[in-house]
Design a protein around this nucleic acid. Structure first.
Lengths: 215, 215, 215, 215
DNA sequence: AATGAATGAGTGTTCATTCAT
DNA sequence: TATGAATGAACACTCATTCAT
């Protein structure tokens, strides 16, 4: 089975392909054992290369952790961001973002789990991830749709709600309606009327393409 | 300096006191180095016992992790719960719980950090912690004050908001008003009017006693 | 076979005995493979303990290198120093020191080789070793027997002559008369007449006791 | 900056030039990190070739160590030897050799350090280096100027005195007069009168050309 | 109950060397 | 001839755990 990172670099040089294989293997290891418990040897073995090869591509374990975490966040963030380029309403955007984040994470559980596991340990990553949310929240405030103050606390709390939902979904503790439920809660917290919150949060949304081949 | 667990068992048998000393030492180690990185040797050394003694009290490292996590959660939960025995209004209770949780965690950063660090890895613990919240949320719904459905998703998301705020407080990324801010957001999410949410969330609350010596 | 360090601590506590066994093993490894090439695992294996035990006794490899080097230097230095406590004449002392150093190193080749190998890499050790020589050289100058200026250059060069002789002896490239030959050269360099240099350098000297048991 | 080995093969075939570049890089690495710690990769990188290329020129790491050590010894030995082709007196030659050896080593510290570091581990090299000294010592004995027996012990000890002085000079522990001081000691050891030893050892000597471009 | 020396599997990392291109 | 990705054995070091005292 070929991983997402590998699929992104098919046909390119060997170096780049091996690096991608390592990153895919890391995602799997991080998801299965957690970031701290995942060993470089296990990652290399999963990637079908020798442990020495790992160090031809990453200075140390920390480097692949960072590379994978940011790789995941950017990939998922970009996919969702692109998919809602034609949505203007901030409330719709927030709902869409929350629901698709959960959906994508569940669709590829390794990615979802690696994402959840890394976000609490990498502050830098948290900032990057919440930047997407922050933009939409500020847009909503500007448009007079959201009645809150957008500060670090709010943005991080908002993001953590999504992360928690992802975690529960992955553990099978909540069902597929979790995305809409959470979005509804969030919209109410943002100041929308219960009725509007419900309408927007439960509106059907399209399935995102899986892992678009090539650029 | 004597730790909280030790203070709880003063005057009792030696076995129970040594165990408490180990748990206090573990809290300190977990906070300083993280749970995974904390070594049994370091814990034993901090507790001023030999490493062998550790295994007279805990089957393995996992056992002390669990013991500490639950110990912290119960201690803090109980303290807050007791302090609001005379508050009837669900909204007031929720606000009080959120704000005091953050306050206590910040007051004893070791405990706060150990709490935050363990809650994401121990599902069992998460359940116990959120039981406190769940009771108040259900009371609010019963009383017609909260307009939501109290399910696992909601309770866990609600709890994670508090955890996130604690983390940000401990990292110094938000100030002392974070508790009230968060409580206000939560109350709005629960269906209170913005005005009421604000009034309740910012109402002064008493400082909790530090670590009551008797039960 | 029991090593010198071990023989020094017979009958004492287990900790101290294991440490001594490790040091004896290190001497052997250093002599056989050189200091850099000697591996901690090999030392532990030679000492018949697990590799983990090594780290119960030495913080890292460097620590045992230092411990062994200074241990050797002090042991040998002390033995020679003690043996010539009743020699007053500086020329006799210098000759005695040079000859016995070579003799002892040859008598226990592992020690000799470890000594030679460590002295070039540990400046601190070089200082300690040459302190013995320096004292006698200064005494000779004070007594008007030696006509030189005793500075760092001279002392270190003087010491290196002995080290070189030890190396050649250990490699079998020179015979047992090397000690006397070298002492004769050194005495001439120090300003003694050729005749006197020869007489002193070739005077029979007693065999030193091997490794005195207990203090 | 072009190294000494490279400068010797300018205008010759590519193969020979690459090899020289590798040797210059090795000198630099050896001096900076020590011979054991210097890695083939680092040498290749310094030489601006790939690590694979290294093995087109040297069977293994040991081979370049030897090549460099002998290259240095021959180059320096030859330069000094050539410079004193018109000196007949053995005492003058010995003094000149000692002083210039130290001077050259200090002038190009990389070379000096690589020389000092390799001479203790390569017996073959030691022989080659001391051959220069041996010739002059024997000449002095033949001429009746030196009153010693020239054997392996003496020659090696004599050489080690120079090596030690170089080491001290490179470490900044002795000043520029070390050459003359040492030469004076050596001449006295060889049997010269203190007055003559001093006169010869301190006589000004010419600065050697740096790295003659032609043979 | 307490000690603390000993264990040994496991970790991250390095590096000389090989080999397909 | 030159490249550089890949290899894998080896290394220093850690740490949860055991056990004789």
């Amino acid at each position: 089975m070929i991983g997402v990172f590998a699929s992104r670099v098919q046909g390119r040089g060997k170096r780049v392909r091996t690096r991608a294989r390592l990153m895919d293997a890391a995602v799997e290891s991080f998801a299965r054992e957690g970031i701290e418990a995942a060993s470089v040897n296990a990652i290399a073995h999963t990637a079908d290369v020798s442990n020495g090869t790992f160090y031809n591509h990453f200075r140390d374990k920390g480097e692949i952790v960072t590379a994978v975490a940011f790789g995941i966040a950017r990939e998922l963030g970009q996919r969702i961001h692109d998919a809602m380029s034609d949505i203007d309403d901030a409330a719709e955007r927030v709902s869409f973002g929350t629901r698709q984040s959960i959906e994508l994470a569940v669709r590829d559980p390794d990615w979802g789990r690696a994402w959840v596991r890394s976000i609490w340990s990498l502050a830098e990553l948290r900032r990057e991830v919440s930047a997407f949310a922050r933009a939409d929240l500020e847009r909503g405030v500007r448009d007079g749709v959201f009645k809150i103050e957008v500060d670090d606390l709010f943005v991080d709390v908002f993001t953590s709600m999504v992360v928690t939902a992802v975690l529960l979904r992955l553990d099978g503790e909540v069902g597929p309606e979790a995305g809409s439920k959470l979005a509804e809660h969030q919209l109410r917290m943002l100041g929308l009327s219960p009725a509007r919150a419900k309408r927007i949060a439960w509106r059907p949304i399209p399935l995102l393409a899986d892992a678009p081949e090539s650029a």
